[in-house]
């Protein structure tokens, strides 16, 4: 391997420092006893204690988790179906529209997605009386809609790289197409489905703008709560919350990276 030029190495160092220094600082400040961020008031874990006693945060976190679990699961089911349809059925009526609708939600600005879904829910309510109130249900639907796009793309690209004759072989050996899907296709795309689920879960936990549009009074997701708090400035208990999230996520990603590396 050729040595990297000094320029490249320094840009890499700068880039990674740029990406990680803010995160490291948040973690450090979360153990700061002082209320003012930059004044070091000694080591303390009191903000974690306050975090756990803050019922608003806990409620919001619980709602967000419920939404994320539900929407990630529905998105994985629909996204997998869509991914299979796109990868395996080359021609069907409306395929262009279908694939356009699959990929568009990923790049659509959140304000537009949020606004359009809210207007849909309001119109639906006028016409049919459903949804009677906005909250868990409407946010879940919104998150499912944009997350299934990601699942579909992941599943589709996994299927594209998979040998199509595996499914043909199973059919050739007497497997009915539906059976073949359960015997061969699904087990082989399971890793892609898991990755898609995790991504959908994370996206749902992450979303602020869309949820702000389609939620009703009284239903605050975790990002909505955090946003309302940080609008007013830096806040120590948010530092503690951020630290928890950073540590959990980094631990998970690091672990799966190590496992993947050992396997190859």
């Amino acid at each position: 391997m050729k040595r990297q030029s000094r320029f490249i190495v320094s840009v890499l160092a700068f880039g990674y420092a740029f990406l990680y220094i803010p995160l490291v600082l948040v973690v450090l400040y979360s153990f700061n006893d002082s209320r003012i961020a930059t004044v070091w008031g000694g080591f303390s874990t009191r903000w974690y204690g306050e975090l756990l006693r803050n019922e608003q945060i806990l409620d919001a976190a619980f709602l967000s988790l419920r939404i994320a679990l539900t929407s990630a699961t529905i998105a994985t089911i629909f996204g997998t179906m869509a991914g299979i349809a796109l990868a395996r059925f080359r021609r069907f009526k409306g395929r262009t529209l279908f694939s356009g609708m699959i990929t568009s939600p990923m790049v659509m600005p959140e304000v537009i997605t949020g606004l359009s879904l809210l207007l849909l829910f309001v119109s639906l309510q006028q016409l049919t009386g459903w949804p009677a109130q906005r909250g868990f249900g409407t946010i879940t639907i919104a998150h499912t809609t944009f997350a299934m796009a990601y699942v579909a793309i992941i599943v589709q690209s996994r299927l594209m790289s998979m040998d199509e004759s595996l499914e043909e072989a199973a059919m050739d050996l007497g497997g009915h197409p539906l059976r073949v899907m359960f015997d061969i296709t699904l087990p082989l795309i399971a890793p892609a489905m898991v990755a898609g689920w995790l991504l959908a879960f994370t996206l749902s936990l992450d979303d602020l703008v869309i949820a702000s549009f389609v939620s009703g009074p009284g239903s605050n997701t975790l990002p909505m709560y955090i946003f309302s708090k940080v609008k007013l400035g830096v806040s120590p208990d948010i530092n503690a919350l951020a630290t928890l999230i950073i540590l959990i996520v980094s631990g998970g990603v690091l672990l799966s990276w190590l496992v993947a590396r050992r396997r190859t």
Binding site: S165, A169, A170, D172, G175
Partner: peptide, 20 residues
């Protein structure tokens, strides 16, 4: 007749051995 009803079997070029 669909492939799963024929008494004909095939050895694929890629072998298509089920990896799992």
């Amino acid at each position: 007749q669909p492939p799963y009803e024929r008494h004909v079997n095939m050895m694929f070029q890629s072998y298509a051995v089920f990896p799992h």
